[in-house]
Design a protein around this nucleic acid. Structure first.
Lengths: 143, 143
DNA sequence: ATTTAGATGCGACATTATTGCAAAAAATAA
DNA sequence: TTATTTTTTGCAATAATGTCGCATCTAAAT
């Protein structure tokens, strides 16, 4: 299982160090976008803040992950999944617990109106709201 | 002209101080979203960093402006225009010069796929790319 | 003009992120 | 395996964005 991470790192010209394997493992395990802070809390081994930042930048440069969106002051990264760096799928962010999710089947359609001479390179769509856990439960509204 | 700003401030329970009138003037003059940094550079009078932040927070609390989007690490604010705080129109941000623009006629259509139990409260749409000034000019491509 | 509620300036601090440099670890060569 | 080279890491310092406390000042009301 770890071999998969070793290969992914080496294929992208990155040494398979403990720290990188660990961070990569966390992304695969989480299956959802992660911010540096969350990664720090999930680490099973000691890794410096600076190293985590450098790992995220290295991964981003290599295309192993990309920045999905900025949530408040946190840059949130994820494995590519179905989206390219240029045209990323929309994301959901819960204002209750900070949980994030990819909305890969959630398509955005827009028409014109960018004005003459403008070039669109990337779209970033973020839906903010409440996840099922943070939503006031409708079945309990009579309590 | 300045009376308009005085009235807008007082109607929202804010004292019409020099700093506030100046910041409000900049928003009206610019006619586009502004970040704290840009405001600092445009100021015609001396105003402390902290004061600008406090003014932006006061204006936001009063509903005179709202945060349009986060660009990199910069919070970008704007006058409401056609959008409410909850459902803001899409924005454009130029990666060349950092210029921002509102895409009020740019409508986003999306369908389903938010999953059961999720509640959408806000949408944030940001298109990144190049503005006409930063775009490599097509007419000069043979140079 | 005096009073007073509230705004400002300044400095300290918190947070997120980057960088320089020496020590450590991984990959390569011997 | 050992030695060498390259890259990464840890630590500390630094930068940028933003907030807060407190003394001082200002706008507006008396």
């Amino acid at each position: 299982m770890e071999e998969r991470f070793f290969g992914l790192l080496r294929d992208n010209g990155l040494k398979a160090t403990k720290g990188r394997v660990e961070v990569l493992r966390l992304f695969f395990k989480a299956g959802r976008p992660l911010a540096q802070k969350q990664i720090m809390e999930m680490l099973r081994l000691k890794l410096d803040r600076a190293s985590v930042y450098r790992i995220l930048n290295a991964f981003t440069g290599a295309g192993i992950i990309h920045m999905a969106f900025v949530d408040g002051r946190h840059r949130v990264y994820e494995l590519p999944g179905k989206c390219s760096g240029r045209n990323c799928h929309p994301h959901f962010s819960c204002r209750g617990c900070g949980m994030t999710a990819c909305l890969e089947d959630f398509k955005v359609y827009y028409k014109g109106a960018l004005g003459k001479g403008f070039v669109a390179e990337r779209q970033k769509v973020l839906i903010e709201g409440l996840c099922p856990n943070c939503r006031p439960d409708r079945d309990r509204r009579h309590e």
